[in-house]
Design a protein around this nucleic acid. Structure first.
Length: 639
RNA sequence: GCCGGCGUAGCUCAGCUGGUAGAGCAGGGCACUCGUAAUGCCCAGGUCGGCGGUUCAAGUCCGCCCGCCGGCUCCA
């Protein structure tokens, strides 16, 4: 007998070899309809798993992360089964769950078309209706190799040969057998709704030198309603797309005649940028940074010393020669900041030495990776470098992480994810340096009470880093801040400081960007707010509209007074109906719309409409100014 | 860069199997002087991404190039 208890509290005794499903039937039959898999001792198992010893069983549902993963993974199997039914020559490879759904890669002599996807969906529907169980079978590696090579599934054979265990597990769904660790949901009938979203090429094992496979993406849910909701989310994301809004709101322009990945900031967008820049500079000065400006190009020799020509050349715009001398456009600001550091003999008294610059850099990015403002070829980093002693590292890191978060909060982001990347296999710098640096990153996160994840081996070869990503209004994650140690450049440029003991020592160098780049950050802001910026950032804060020509002079006067109060205001005195003007202002997402008619003109008041809230009623001009100022000064981000 | 899709007026898009381009919005003009998301009428506007080719004839078919979109790889 085995004693089994559920994480929900129920307990019971069963004969050894009882399945998870049988246990649930006995102890908590109500959840049987929704439970997908179970967790025993931290391991996920099928409901058909046989229990041989005392344990606690934790039922897992779609609502759990692991439940979703299993659900999507199982759907990927169903899709593969459908593909094999329709295209028997297609070879299967891998089909994992991803953040929002799943994919499966196939090797097929041509790519799948949208029509193929429809057919595959139809076939999947049949498989779901037929409600096939996912059956687990364990076989020896030899047997598995024979089975899959007989079927001509070379990729599976390759995978099996890399598994260290002697026994591998297979899952059968109808006639389809797949090598798979599992577990799976009980049967295909559980997949209430699914949709295949797109086809794309993908390299076998993500390696450019390998064969390109056909990847099909999809999502699935237990109910149709959930699928509908997800599709609505995709629609919402589309509406917020910064490329679309950038055009609609006249914020920026990327034109093929100018060059792909090169951004032109239109006047409205430039206002937003100026607001960000002014704020950023003020905050940096307050935080003890010194602002500098550095050139856009530098001699080849400089990039040789820095090592960029060795390890970064493929991302740099090509060489140009001026009077026989080689120059490169800068892909990074660091070498220049180093020359600020070395412009004087530095003493330990000078440290920490913090330099900041909104430095515009150019990087050659492969054409296929460019994406609106998020991935461009010319961008302005909100860059800074901190030079400090080993003793100062911890405080500097902690202060920098705090600084990053306070800044992001001012822009209305309150939901963060923190990742600490540790030493990769190939790295420079001593073990001690890595330890001190990595330890300071972890400690900073811990002392600030932030949850973080360790990304093992994901650091750069020259040092560990901590990245901060933000979650936007509809839950999407964006990379912004990065704080990186650099053990490479101080060596290469032979940086030193004179310590108390009179000896010259090597400073630690920390490279960091808080917003990331102004371009990307702008893109994130646009998507987060769907173009309706908080008042302090909004290109136009107030638009004054008259009802008839009679109040045009008053509208202009009101706008002038607002402007004189430091508010970005403008008047719309065109001969149009008020409804039309309001509609335009709404579409332009202007936060404050002020209407003036004869009543307001006579009373010297204004009728105020706040975007997102509707009409606020009639008030004195001073009241309006106070309301707008309040939102600006306190950086109010919620309407 | 690689795989797939797309590229028609400033914008959003229509244009079946080849016969020589159309709508809405925006823009210009006129009338209307109007209370919180579209007043009406008129006008103008396109070497159909570029270059070649097939054809009596190409926006429609073929090739190459450029750009964009979705992925892969990479990343601020």
């Amino acid at each position: 007998m085995v004693r089994v208890s559920l994480s929900t509290g129920e307990k019971g005794e069963f004969p050894s070899g009882v399945t998870v499903r049988e246990v649930l039937e006995k102890l908590n039959p109500r959840i049987l309809r929704d439970v997908l898999v179970a967790k025993i001792d931290g391991r996920l198992v099928d409901l058909s798993h046989k229990i041989e010893k005392d344990c606690v069983v934790e039922p897992v549902f779609f609502e759990d992360r692991e439940g979703k993963e299993t659900f999507w993974h199982s759907t990927a199997h169903v899709m593969a089964a459908a593909v094999k039914r329709l295209f028997p020559e297609a070879k299967v490879t891998i089909g994992p769950p991803i953040e929002n759904g799943f994919y499966y890669d196939f090797d097929y002599h041509r790519s799948f078309t949208p029509e193929d996807l429809e057919k595959i969906e139809e076939e999947m529907k049949k498989l779901v209706e037929e409600d096939h169980p996912f059956e687990r079978v364990e076989v020896s590696k030899e047997e598995a190799v024979k089975l899959f090579s007989d079927m001509g599934e070379d990729y599976k054979v390759e995978l099996i040969n890399e598994i260290p265990d002697h026994v591998v597990s297979l899952y059968k769904t109808d006639g389809f057998v797949d090598l798979c660790r599992g577990p799976h949901i009980p049967s295909t009938g559980r997949i209430g709704a699914f949709k295949l979203l797109s086809v794309a090429g993908a390299y076998w094992r993500g390696d450019e030198s390998n064969k390109m496979l056909q990847r099909i993406y999809g999502v699935s849910f237990p109910t149709k309603k959930q699928l509908k909701e997800y599709l609505r989310f995709l629609e919402e994301a589309k509406k917020r797309d910064h490329r679309r809004l950038g055009k609609e709101l006249k914020l920026f322009l990327i034109d093929e005649d100018v060059g792909p990945g090169l951004v032109i900031w239109l006047p409205r967008g430039a206002v937003v940028r100026k607001v960000i820049e002014d704020y950023w500079k003020k905050k940096h000065e307050e935080a003890g940074y010194q602002l500098v400006y550095t050139p856009h190009v530098g001699k080849g020799r400089l990039w040789e010393i820095s090592g960029h020509l060795d390890f970064y050349r493929e991302n740099m715009f090509p060489e140009m020669k001026i009077e026989e001398v080689s120059y490169f456009v800068k892909p990074m600001n660091c070498p220049f900041h180093i020359y600020v550091y070395t412009s004087e003999l530095r003493s330990y008294r000078d440290l920490p030495f913090r330099l900041a610059e909104l430095g515009t850099v150019y990087r050659y990015e492969k054409s296929g990776v460019l994406h609106g403002l998020m991935r461009v070829r010319g961008f302005t980093q909100d860059d800074a470098h901190i030079f400090c002693t080993p003793e100062q590292v911890e405080d500097e890191i902690k202060a920098t992480v705090e600084f990053a978060i306070s800044m992001l909060k001012d822009f209305g982001f309150n939901d963060f994810n923190i990742y600490v990347s540790t030493k990769p296999d190939k790295a420079i710098g001593s073990e001690d340096m890595w330890e001190l640096a990595t330890g300071s990153l972890v400690k900073a996160a811990e002392e600030l009470g932030l949850e973080y994840e360790i990304e093992e081996g994901e650091g750069a070869f020259y040092g560990p880093k901590i990245d901060i990503t933000i979650n936007d209004a509809i839950g999407r994650e964006w990379q912004c801040s990065t704080i990186q140690f650099d053990f490479n450049l101080p060596e290469r440029f032979n940086l030193t400081y004179r310590d108390k003991d009179g000896k010259d020592k090597r400073p630690y160098m920390i490279h960091r960007a808080l917003l990331g780049s102004l371009e990307r950050f702008f893109g994130v802001l646009i998507e987060h707010y769907a173009g309706a910026f908080p008042v302090w950032i909004s290109p136009v804060q107030v638009r004054v509209m008259n009802i008839t020509d009679e109040q045009a002079d008053y509208a202009l006067e009101v706008a002038d007074i607002l402007k004189a109060s430091g508010i970005r205001a403008e008047a719309d005195v065109r001969n149009e109906k008020i409804g039309y003007k309001i509609r335009e202002a709404e579409k332009e997402k202007i936060p404050y719309m002020v209407v003036v008619g004869n009543r307001e003109k006579a009373e010297k008041t204004v009728s105020v409409r706040r975007k997102g809230r509707g009409q606020l009623g009639t008030m004195k001009l001073e009241e309006l100014i106070a309301a707008v100022k309040n939102e600006i000064d306190n950086k109010i981000t919620e309407v």
